[in-house]
Design a protein around this nucleic acid. Sequence first.
DNA 1: AAGACGAAAGTGGTTGA
DNA 2: TCAACAACTTTCGTCTT
Length: 309
Amino acid sequence: MQKGTPMIEEQKTCPKCNSSELIYDPQRSELSCRRCGYVIEENNMDMGPEYRAFDSEQRAKRTRVGAPMSFAISDKGLSTAIGQQNKDFNGRNIPERNLAQINRLRKWNKRIRISGTGERNLAIALSELDRQSSKLGLPRDVREDAALIYRKAAKMNLVRGRSIEGMVAASVYTAARRNDLPRTLDEVSDVSNVTKKQIGKNYRFLAKQLGIKLTPPSPADYVPRFASILRLSGNVESMAIDIVNKSREKGLITGREPTGVAAATLYIASVLIGEKVTQRQIAETASVSEVTVRNRYKELTEKLNLCVL
DNA sequence: AAGACGAAAGTGGTTGA
DNA sequence: TCAACAACTTTCGTCTT
């Protein structure tokens, strides 16, 4: 998925300031105004099929797929189930004398589907995974990736002796970073009952065992999310990303916490553009201290010769 | 009164002998 | 294994708007 390439839509205008410069952010599937940051449409994803069907016959003909296969469901969504209506496949009622048999089949079909501790643990893990990712606001493809990582780990017996929740948290953390929508250890820790330290440990373990190599997240990856929480406009957002890029060229980023840099660049941009937020607010949303915001801010403005006043 | 600034001391994790 | 170290945090007093 391409980030940072805003698509400008022409036909619509912002209801707040009437600007026609709207930005579509595919990551959050959110249409917002470049000038004032007003969010016009959220989650405007088209979930329907791309074909049209006017009666059931056409629908049957044009449908090409069933429910999507998903790594986030323990049997990948490909399970069978025996229906609740007592009809056979021709739609006739099943004779009384066979009902008991059908009921037994139903029972066993259910039992077999989630059988053995391995499968059961996986089912628990994946529902936990879904809970955590949805609290973190991660899109579906990231959840799928997290599920894939967890499955691999489970298959390699890496979960044994560790808490399911902890490994799930680490998978989510890894997937988020891998897909350039990083969440901090603090954030993942908040939605799970796992300490930051433990998640970090599990992450390093997972990365080593599965051969996952990740570069540290870029501050620019955090900028859109923080900007949106603070209701800052697209102007501020893109300027902050510019500042991040310039800082990187001058080597001012290495060794600094990405969230701190993201917070500082947003602060600078917000002041320059005149949509000032307080250091306190920005520090809070980036979960860094005000002092860190100040230090980064000072560093960047000095070294980049930015005149803030 | 709220926000910005900076000094000082403390914390947890990494690095290198 | 231990000490040095860099980055960050907390706390607090002072200055600015």
